[in-house]
Amino acid sequence: MMVNIRVNGKQYKKDIEPRLLLVNFLRDELNLTGTHIGCDTSNCGACTVLMDGKSVKSCTVLAMQANNHEITTIEHEDPELNAIKDAYVEEQGLQCGFCTPGMIMETFYLLKDAGNKDVDDDYIKKKLSGNLCRCTGYRSIIDSIKKANEKIREKEEIHVSR
């Protein structure tokens, strides 16, 4: 079946099997391999992407469900997303790096979704309940998110080379 999906600002039209999962559409059809698969059961969140600005688990969404929608992945170029990436590097909010794209995309969403709420430990812990990390114990991830929040609010200059 034909799908039209806008990914990171670019329109893609592809003929796919209806059963194709969004994560495989991104990874195999578009070669956007930054989005990872960590479990079969929508527990781990390594596959988190944004659909129309809201975080979803792309391993539990059919590519067909994204038809005529807009998807944002870790490969997206965006000043706020870059600020988050910088913060993860500075705070070493990753070790093996496998959960990282999902963590960063969920961070992107939870910071936008926070509105005027305080982005403190409690808020972040609650909002991170759909993402697993086996390496860091989350402390450095939470610190990265808090730092990213500061950067975005202060519009700090982005400096990580990419």
């Binding site: 990872h36 870790i74 993860y88 790096g97 496998f98 990282t100």
Partner: peptide, 17 residues
Amino acid sequence: MYLDRFVNGKGQYIDDL
């Protein structure tokens, strides 16, 4: 640097090859 690669989704894990 691995940190930069990984935060940008540029890791080359086995299923990416």
